[in-house]
Design a protein around this nucleic acid. Structure first.
Lengths: 204, 204
DNA sequence: TGACGACATATCCGAAAGGATAAGTGGCAT
DNA sequence: ATGCCACTTATCCTTTCGGATATGTCGTCA
């Protein structure tokens, strides 16, 4: 089996090569940037699998993947990255990548995944696909004061100002003020829009 | 490598055995129900991987998986099924399954997946995790007339009755009538609650 | 044909909602 | 201590909602 590893991180590249060749059945070539990888692909095809580091010189994110896939449409190419998110992984797959490997993967799993992909399968770590994207403490909630958040929650529950006032032990005018402020901050025109926006932002 | 295949569908079981043993390095045992599988596990451990059909006698859905995992906590067990959904696959994984295999998988991929799981990895077909669950035509929408659905959509967009009237080329009183009817049908008290309910039901 | 349901329009009325503006507390920081 | 900010309460006024009720046109189905 022949694998081409393209990663500008020497340590990772070398350990990967060592692991794969230790197995015995695998031959590896390596490159430190996309241009080198492409010229190797031109001169010594075919490879069972090509690993491209998402962040190495010449990649420009997933552009490098797409370009390489255009030049070598039949080549199985996987993306390897230390920082990428689920979105990137999905984008890579829909661009036609053979898989996606985070560098956080244990070496053994990594070798297994490479073999798996070389067999023609698609691989993405399970936890990458199942876990919801980590919501960075919502940009919306940041801008709102405590009270405003409490009131907003009332709105998302379809309550009237009077109800919210009772729940928070305040008077109705106060709620109306908070509600008005909320509209300004959220850029909406009425309580329904505010409720929907809060819901869509994943609040409450 | 030793694999135990438990499936009450003889044809599938036999072809799987044939495929795996053709490879040469794999030994297989097979069972047609959960009880047989368990007794084989007791008598002839260890197996690198156990495949349990979700629908064979004794399984009761994922209960059989959980029971078997309790009896053999260190055993790697994967679920195989012809009908299951993404939810079931996720549930199986979170119960500690080594993977999930739909019977729609090509034989070659199936063998690859089995080898992959036997190596200690978790496997689920990529498309199982990425595709959204297909919403059965919503029970809510069923009960509503065409106009009511159009009006409800207006509500979910935070529009006023007047706006909705303009959009649908009707007069405001008409919209108010539909809105009122909607509240009765949905069992809500105001437009915000109606909007939220429609959103939660996956409408629009 | 007559009953029924979906759809449309209208009027009346009280209750909310929404906008503007004013003015008070308390905490916290420069 | 002065100013800023979050929070509070209040009043006025206009618009919108929400409920009740009445009336009319369609088309369908028995």
């Amino acid at each position: 089996m022949r694998v081409l590893i393209a990663d500008d991180h020497d340590l990772l590249r070398d350990t990967l090569v060592a692991f794969l060749e230790a197995n015995g059945e695998t031959q590896t070539n390596s490159a430190a940037n996309l241009a080198d990888a492409v010229s190797i692909l031109k001169q010594e095809p075919p490879f069972d699998l090509v690993l491209l580091d998402l962040n190495m010189p010449g990649m420009n994110g997933l552009n490098g993947l797409n370009e390489t896939l255009e030049k070598f449409p039949d080549q199985r190419i996987a993306i390897i990255s230390g920082i990428a998110t689920r979105e990137v992984a999905e984008a890579a797959l829909s661009s036609g990548a053979a898989g996606f490997i985070p560098k956080t993967l244990p070496a053994k799993s990594l070798v297994n995944a490479i073999n798996f992909m070389a067999m023609g399968e698609q691989y993405v770590p399970i936890n990458f696909m199942t876990t919801e994207e980590a919501q960075p403490p919502n940009p919306l909630a940041e801008k709102l004061t405590n009270r405003e958040n409490q009131v907003l929650q009332g709105l998302t529950e379809g309550k009237s100002n009077k109800q919210i006032a009772r729940d928070l032990d305040l008077t109705e005018p106060t709620i109306k003020l908070h509600v008005k402020t909320l509209y300004r901050k959220l850029g909406v025109a009425n309580r329904t829009q505010a409720a929907i926006m809060a819901r869509e932002a994943g609040l409450f």
